[in-house]
Amino acid sequence: MADKLLNWNEVLIGATIKDPGNSKNYETGSWRVEKPIWNPDTCINCMFCWVYCPDSAIKVDEKGNMAGIDYDHCKGCGICVEQCPSKPKSLAMILEANAKNKTEEDLRKELFSK
């Protein structure tokens, strides 16, 4: 999202965008119905989730390893969970409604400790 919602006589002609890549500023995380939770304890850093994620919402650290999920952009499609090859899977989906008011640590325990 741009800093300011511009008026009709302020927008750039033809809906042209002069700052390419600004879709990063447009947060789409609120669209989610289900939320992916990552378990670093079993993750093998294969980076399949990063390859498959259609929203570039898998975070990568400086070593090129999986570093979590960018919840500002993840739309909750669940592709990362589907393709995760580790056994057991290192990603799991939970309904946003059931994830409310819980920390990521709480959710990890709930989903992965079984």
């Binding site: 009709w8 302020e10 809906a15 042209t16 965008i17 002069k18 390419p20």
Partner: peptide
């Protein structure tokens, strides 16, 4: 000066672009 043409304008932008 790279630009994007034909981008998506969601409900909070489309109206302004059409009037422009």
């Amino acid at each position: 000066e790279p630009v994007t043409h034909g981008a998506w304008a969601p409900p909070d932008w489309y109206f302004e672009h059409r009037m422009n």
